[in-house]
């Protein structure tokens, strides 16, 4: 009995030793020389492998950053400035801080604002739907509400609100990786700067239709009247093809356009509920709702 045990242990021990020696030499022979900094950079990266940086994943990002002469053209949207600063430090370089961005859904064609005129059947995907026809509402530019953006989001930051039928971005979870921007077949989602105190003003519509057509299809569409562009003191608003666009690099968050917009297509988020002038009261109506939503989200986190 005891000899069996001893024999077993001896056999296995010798075998183990033999293999470890073999493995050692094999490892020596087939060793791949790799820049050790790649591992360091990779360990700094968030490891989401989202592809938001334009690389195939975090490992590829690390490899390319180390290879590249300058870190300047690289940016990890998930880790943001702190991560980039750390990587720069690890590589002995300097990096400029970039302004934080957030995904903004530029359509408010909710179920209430935009009537459905037909019923879509088939695989529930915006891509399938948009390749087939303009969508189940009268607006061919608006959100289809099938949630391709929700599917691709790796950070649980964008969700279709079943009551409203359009996606909503959780600005605290959003890393501005841009996956939803690419996924949206109607190009409704845009990466905009987070703004001062996370306050943002944007045109929540992409309709290039004539005013009358837009009005018929949607209650809160941009009709291209141009009033906002006239009232903007900073020249941040341009109107092209019956559609206004606010350049966030020029916008100073004065909110004059919000008051002016006849269809309430311009949205201001994260501003205090109380507005300075009583004259603007009618236009504040949709705002408390958004602010409430955004603030509850903040409390949750």
């Amino acid at each position: 009995m005891s000899t069996t045990i001893i024999l077993t242990i001896a056999c296995l021990g010798v075998l183990g030793l033999l293999f470890s020696v073999v493995l050692y030499f094999v490892a020596q022979k087939f060793k791949v020389e790799e820049d050790p900094r790649i591992d360091i950079v990779e360990s700094i990266l968030p490891g989401a492998n989202c592809g938001g940086c334009g690389q195939a994943g975090c490992r590829a990002f690390a490899e390319n950053v180390v290879k590249a002469p300058s870190i300047g053209s690289f940016f990890c949207p998930v880790g943001g400035n702190p991560t980039m600063a750390e990587i720069a430090k690890a590589l002995g370089q300097e990096v400029e801080a970039k302004e934080p961005m957030v995904a903004v859904v530029r359509c408010h064609g909710t179920i209430d604002n935009r009537a459905k005129i037909n019923n879509f059947e088939g695989y529930s995907s915006c891509k399938v739907m948009s390749s087939l026809y303009i969508g189940d509402t009268g607006c061919k530019y608006g959100c289809l509400g099938k949630g391709d953006c929700e599917v691709v989001c790796k950070f649980d930051a964008i969700h279709i609100d079943p009551k409203r039928g359009i996606p909503e971005v959780n600005q605290d979870k959003c890393t501005a990786c841009g996956a939803c921007v690419k996924a949206c077949p109607k190009s409704i989602i845009e990466l905009r700067n987070k703004g001062l105190k996370e306050r943002r003003v944007y045109v929540s519509c992409l309709s290039k239709d004539k005013g009358a057509v837009t009005r018929k299809a949607c209650a809160v569409g941009c009709i291209g009247c141009g009033k906002c562009a006239k009232v903007c003191p900073f020249g941040a608003i341009t109107v092209e093809n019956n559609l206004a666009y606010i350049d966030f690099t020029k916008c100073k968050l004065c909110r004059k356009c919000v008051e002016e917009c006849p269809t309430k297509a311009i949205w201001a988020v994260n501003f205090p509920i109380k507005l300075p002038k009583s004259a603007t009261e009618p236009h504040t109506e949709p705002q408390p709702q958004t602010i409430e939503k955004e603030s509850t989200v903040q409390q949750e986190n």
Binding site: I117, N118, N119, E121, G122, Y123
Partner: peptide, 9 residues
């Protein structure tokens, strides 16, 4: 007007 069904073939 009644809503039509639209679906891929």
């Amino acid at each position: 007007m009644r809503k039509l069904i639209v679906s891929p073939a």
